[in-house]
């Protein structure tokens, strides 16, 4: 049986299509569902709940706030809590991350504030995965590049280090310098997870780097690999997050295998 991901859309969510594409490439089934149609289906049929990036409700009262309020509302709020309690995966990207924070599903006392630059930033950043984190989404990842594009991504609060699965880096390591740390996050945090490692939010966009040709320097990579007779890879580094999510969710479908692990 294939893993099934439920991807929310509507009300200003922008990136459901790219998320769906990522799950297709990771060999999972997915359903893109409008927020207003959620009552028509059962979360029991899914192993991953996805809150994609965008500007839900125009971000007017602070990013993610209005969407979080809708998702906390009965009976959906209870259904999502049950989903989390069952050890299923919840994944928020960018505005979805902001929404998870507002829903209270990520470490208490943390929030996402306007970028230190005071501006919306669209740029590629270097990230390093924290190997001690329980996060199932970043398992096995080391260093990679992804784009950020947000105006409110500065993490405030004091999250435990292991619940920060990804950090903004420069050549030397985690950094607070602009623009490598594009928003001024504490602990150079680009992501947060809950102690189970199964609720995960990040500001960068893995779904925007599914193919190598989405990287800003891909033409150089291609030119140089060709000259040295090596192969230019087709995949982008963001696909690993999808594969990890699908692998972790697969264990829920095959309890015997999970027990053996």
């Amino acid at each position: 049986m294939k893993v099934r991901a439920l991807i929310l859309t509507g009300q200003g969510i922008n990136c459901a299509r790219e998320m769906a594409q990522g799950f297709s490439l990771a060999d999972a089934d997915w359903l893109v569902c409008h927020l207003n149609d959620l009552h028509q289906l059962s979360l029991e049929d899914f192993q991953i709940l996805v809150l994609p990036g965008g500007f839900s409700f125009g971000d007017h009262l602070g990013s993610g706030r209005a969407l979080a309020r809708r998702l906390r509302r009965a009976p959906l709020g209870q259904a999502i809590q049950r989903f989390v309690d069952q050890g299923k995966l919840v994944w928020g990207v960018c505005n979805g991350f902001q929404t998870l924070v507002q829903m209270g599903l990520l470490p208490e006392g943390c929030s996402l504030a306007p970028n230190a630059s005071g501006r919306f930033e669209c740029r590629w950043v270097r990230l390093k995965a924290q190997s001690l984190s329980p996060c199932v989404f970043t398992k096995g990842l080391d260093s990679l590049e992804l784009p950020v594009r947000h105006g409110e991504g500065r993490l405030v609060g004091t999250p435990p280090a292991e619940l920060v699965p990804l950090q903004y880096c420069d050549q030397a390591g985690p950094t607070h310098n602009y623009p490598e740390n594009p928003n001024g996050s504490v602990q150079a945090a680009a992501a947060l997870c809950d102690p189970s490692g199964r609720v995960f939010g990040l500001m960068p966009h893995p779904e925007a780097f599914l193919r190598s040709t989405q990287h800003p320097e891909w033409t150089r990579h291609k030119e140089l690999t060709r000259r040295f007779g090596t192969e230019f890879p087709a995949e982008g580094a963001g696909l690993a997050f999808f594969r990890n999510a699908v692998a972790a969710a697969q264990e829920l479908l095959e309890p015997s295998r999970a027990a053996a692990l």
Partner: peptide, 14 residues
């Protein structure tokens, strides 16, 4: 340019 999202939809090549 950095204040405009040129990546959303994942179509960007150049």
């Amino acid at each position: 340019i950095r204040q405009y999202d040129h990546e959303v939809q994942g179509t960007s090549v150049i």
